[in-house]
Design a binder for these strands. Sequence first.
DNA 1: TAAAATAATGCACTTCCATTGCATTGATTA
DNA 2: TAATCAATGCAATGGAAGTGCATTATTTTA
Lengths: 138, 138
Amino acid sequence: MNKTEQFLQLKGIRVTAMRILIYNFLSEKKVTVTLSDIENAFDKADRTTLYRTIKTFEDKEIVHQIDDGTGVTKYALCEPNCHCDLNTDLHLHFHCTQCGATVCLTDHKIPKIKVPNGYIAEHVNLVVKGICDKCSVK
Amino acid sequence: MNKTEQFLQLKGIRVTAMRILIYNFLSEKKVTVTLSDIENAFDKADRTTLYRTIKTFEDKEIVHQIDDGTGVTKYALCEPNCHCDLNTDLHLHFHCTQCGATVCLTDHKIPKIKVPNGYIAEHVNLVVKGICDKCSVK
DNA sequence: TAAAATAATGCACTTCCATTGCATTGATTA
DNA sequence: TAATCAATGCAATGGAAGTGCATTATTTTA
Ligand SMILES: [Mn+2]
Ligand SMILES: [Mn+2]
Ligand SMILES: [Zn+2]
Ligand SMILES: [Zn+2]
């Protein structure tokens, strides 16, 4: 049993071929991926299975969702010390309008946001759009 | 010719019955609205017309879009000194998870966000989720 | 180990929202 | 008034997310 399999088991989910494949696919990626990206990478597999696999990963805090405003949900592996559940230590996300890539800026935390009296802030989503490092040097 | 009609003409679009109605509907609202909200308010009108009216308003910077992460696009009238085009003076948006309302916090500007070297920030979308003032007092 | 229980997968179908083509109606201008 | 151009209405499309149910695989337990 290798690292990936051990990790999945530790997270309390059954270790299946599909889950290992998807997990490894995500860990090789430097950027966030959509369900379609996964579909294209595993065209033999059914979309529903991929969809449910990613949902399971989400539930178990293996991946987190990113809503970058493009209308398509992006996913990325959580960092070892990620606390998606607690909504603390939230990093920001960057969407490149040139190449379309969305990346986690894991060590750029979201600053404290002030809200008016009476409002209770529970969660913050912050997406910066612009040109990424790879596109800006071209 | 009243205020609304003058305003629309000033923005360089034809003054039609539908546009006046939708503009007034938006200006009476304290919160952002969805296309469905407008549909429900004007059930005699065709959805496409409402859709295109709001798109025209957007192009002419009469309204701005808000993506609050619910998956449905919200719209709100721009403030008199709104610069949606320049991406300057961006205010933040608040989405109440209790009543579902999304509001513009027009005098809560988005703080300067640092991005890594090589990245060029052009636009920032910031949505705070939580409990709004009306819901928190209940 | 075999049977029973539980979870994962695959297929078909649905829902929701955004968007477009095209014909028609209405407004503006020459 | 006729010609022109924009707004409206209808029908259809497309993309993405989500669900019900039968089948297959994995795990439990007797
Ligand atoms: Mn992230
Ligand atoms: Mn706003
Ligand atoms: Zn890029
Ligand atoms: Zn509320």
